[in-house]
Design a protein around this nucleic acid. Sequence first.
DNA 1: TTTGAAATGTTCGCGGT
DNA 2: ACCGCGAACATTTCAAA
Lengths: 146, 146
Amino acid sequence: MSVDVDAIDHSLLRLLRQDGRRTYSEMAEKVGLSVAAVKRRVDRLREIGVITGFTVEIDHAKLGWGIEAFTELRYLGTTGVEEIVRSASMLPEVQAVFTVAGESDALIWLRVRDMAHLKQGIDHLRRTGNVTGTKTMMILGSWIRD
Amino acid sequence: MSVDVDAIDHSLLRLLRQDGRRTYSEMAEKVGLSVAAVKRRVDRLREIGVITGFTVEIDHAKLGWGIEAFTELRYLGTTGVEEIVRSASMLPEVQAVFTVAGESDALIWLRVRDMAHLKQGIDHLRRTGNVTGTKTMMILGSWIRD
DNA sequence: TTTGAAATGTTCGCGGT
DNA sequence: ACCGCGAACATTTCAAA
């Protein structure tokens, strides 16, 4: 399932990670190709599925959702992975769901307005699906690549 | 530190989360404003720090980095939070670092090519900084909002 | 806030390597 | 298969109302 992506493609991906709205002209200048060549390469990276989309990065604290936490969930042995993701992702407070192998079955990334809101979110998770136990870590700070 | 962001701003943020390369014209049509008004709003969201940037979403498995894991790290009590982030973020395998309150001090999101590579990454983390213990969860699947 | 016009960027066909 | 060129089309940007 791996694909051929050369050094220039990697440069383009790096440039787009730094700024997803960069123009083709700007990228063309940086990698030393024509504008059309750059567009064709980016189009191809989308077609073969290396690029799955573009998005905006938001400071949620500025929007009043300044508290983040990870909650590890354990489910009944009969609960399928798909079911875990489906039930957890319904909560608007859930930013991401990772199904994992280890003591826990899932790791949930929560984003909330305050502690009361967090409590409510965790309670909701415990009630939805067949949750048998939770363990929550408050996020003090985070660093994300690029 | 919270700011005033109205319903139209939220619509624009939602549209940009779905596709960060949407044109102002397209957004203008969807929210019922002129193109210039939309541009001014997006510019303002950047200025006040709600929008911190734009980026591309990549399928890393297609690039041959198909294994992901979370590693919980415990550090010596003398280790500062800044030091934890600084040492961990140096590894290219580290996708994100979350400093947390709880049993562990940090939660590291790793992305690697294979199991040998994962082992090497965790070993490196254990050696860098004052790590006193680790616990790793392999990621089986993930769902991320939008 | 909108309008309007110039500058800039995107898209695609075609010919060349 | 990949590139560059050029022309048509679309978007961005900003000044003025």
